[in-house]
Computed example of a mutant assay.
Amino acid sequence: MSVLSPKLEAVRRAPLRTLDAIGAHGLFYARVLTGIPRALRRHPGEIVKLIAELGTGTGALALVGGSIVIVASITFFAGAVAAAQGFESSSSLGVGSLSPLLAAFFTARLSTPLLAGVALSVTLGAATTSQLGAMRISEEIDAIEVMAIPSLPYLATTRVAAGMIVITPLYIFATLGGFLADYLLLVFFYDVGAGNFSHYFFLYLHPMDIVFSYIQVLGMVIVVMLVHTFYGYNAKGGPAGVGEAVGRSVRASLSGVMVVNLLIAMAIYSNFNTFHLGG
């Protein structure tokens, strides 16, 4: 009985702990988002510095081009996979020349926004958690509070705002990487023909698909930055605790990316269809 009692007590308290965690996350996110006007007004220099840091990275990461190269590389290979699968599938039906339209459809709507969100989680997000976690365990955040500077807008809100701004050039390079992979693979490897590629690719690539995918990525980056700033800002337990916070934040943000991508796609494409295939 003495062995079972702690376990039963833990099971009984699990729903309460879950509600407490949801409340803590919700309150933190609300405070961060409502602090964006203050961060833009009081800390514009910090936001500019963070934009450069998130976009190009620091140290060894900056030598390879930072997050831009990482995100573009991931979407490049994802676009290559979409092009290869589209060509092989369409060729089995005898319509291999139509493979560019499949590449345009899947690259713009599926692979680029989803893979960009995942890449942001493991690059920008993980770096944010580790930075804030290191500041928390070294008592730098407490020192900022002692100097009468609200630490949440200065450290968390500025990073969320910087992520929302830096996502635009990152997404441009991510999209170009996916489209470049489609062109190179289909034209030079599968001999589709440059003219045939241009005709079918741009015939079925609706400009609104690019806009919608950007909206998806913008929603995902907001979730990623909010989740990672929460875990980094509230890290505890020394260096091991920071590592644990990074692991938990990556798992949580990846789940959030999938959910946000699904919800935004359902909200957009259920009422506005840009793909029409007719004879």
Score class of each variant (00 low, 15 high):
residue 22 I to K: 10
residue 138 S to C: 04
residue 86 G to Y: 02
residue 138 S to N: 04
residue 211 V to M: 02
residue 22 I to F: 14
residue 158 T to E: 06
residue 140 E to K: 13
residue 168 T to W: 13
residue 91 S to W: 02
residue 237 G to Y: 05
residue 273 N to I: 12
residue 168 T to E: 04
residue 130 S to T: 11
residue 46 E to G: 11
residue 33 L to S: 01
residue 3 V to F: 14
residue 14 A to H: 12
residue 101 L to A: 13
residue 234 N to S: 13
residue 240 A to E: 14
residue 86 G to H: 02
residue 55 G to E: 09
residue 158 T to W: 11
residue 157 T to F: 03
residue 6 P to M: 09
residue 132 L to G: 08
residue 196 N to F: 10
residue 104 A to G: 12
residue 225 M to H: 14
residue 159 R to H: 01
residue 143 A to L: 05
residue 176 L to R: 02
residue 143 A to E: 01
residue 63 L to Q: 13
residue 197 F to R: 11
residue 227 V to Q: 06
residue 261 N to C: 11
residue 153 P to D: 14
residue 109 R to H: 08
residue 40 L to C: 08
residue 92 S to G: 05
residue 220 M to R: 00
residue 97 S to E: 12
residue 195 G to Y: 07
residue 141 I to Q: 00
residue 141 I to W: 00
residue 152 L to H: 02
residue 207 P to N: 03
residue 77 F to T: 07
residue 184 L to C: 07
residue 176 L to W: 05
residue 142 D to K: 13
residue 208 M to F: 11
residue 118 V to D: 03
residue 119 A to V: 08
residue 44 P to A: 05
residue 106 F to M: 07
residue 12 R to Q: 13
residue 263 L to Y: 08
residue 261 N to T: 09
residue 233 Y to C: 05
residue 107 T to M: 07
residue 271 N to L: 12
residue 7 K to L: 15
residue 216 Q to H: 10
residue 7 K to S: 12
residue 217 V to H: 07
residue 69 V to P: 07
residue 151 S to C: 12
residue 213 S to Y: 08
residue 83 A to R: 09
residue 257 V to R: 09
residue 132 L to N: 07
residue 120 L to D: 04
residue 27 L to C: 00
residue 12 R to L: 15
residue 116 A to N: 10
residue 136 R to C: 02
residue 279 G to Y: 11
residue 77 F to G: 09
residue 49 K to H: 13
residue 242 V to F: 00
residue 203 L to Y: 12
residue 260 V to P: 03
residue 110 L to D: 10
residue 133 G to R: 06
residue 102 L to A: 12
residue 72 A to R: 01
residue 42 R to D: 15
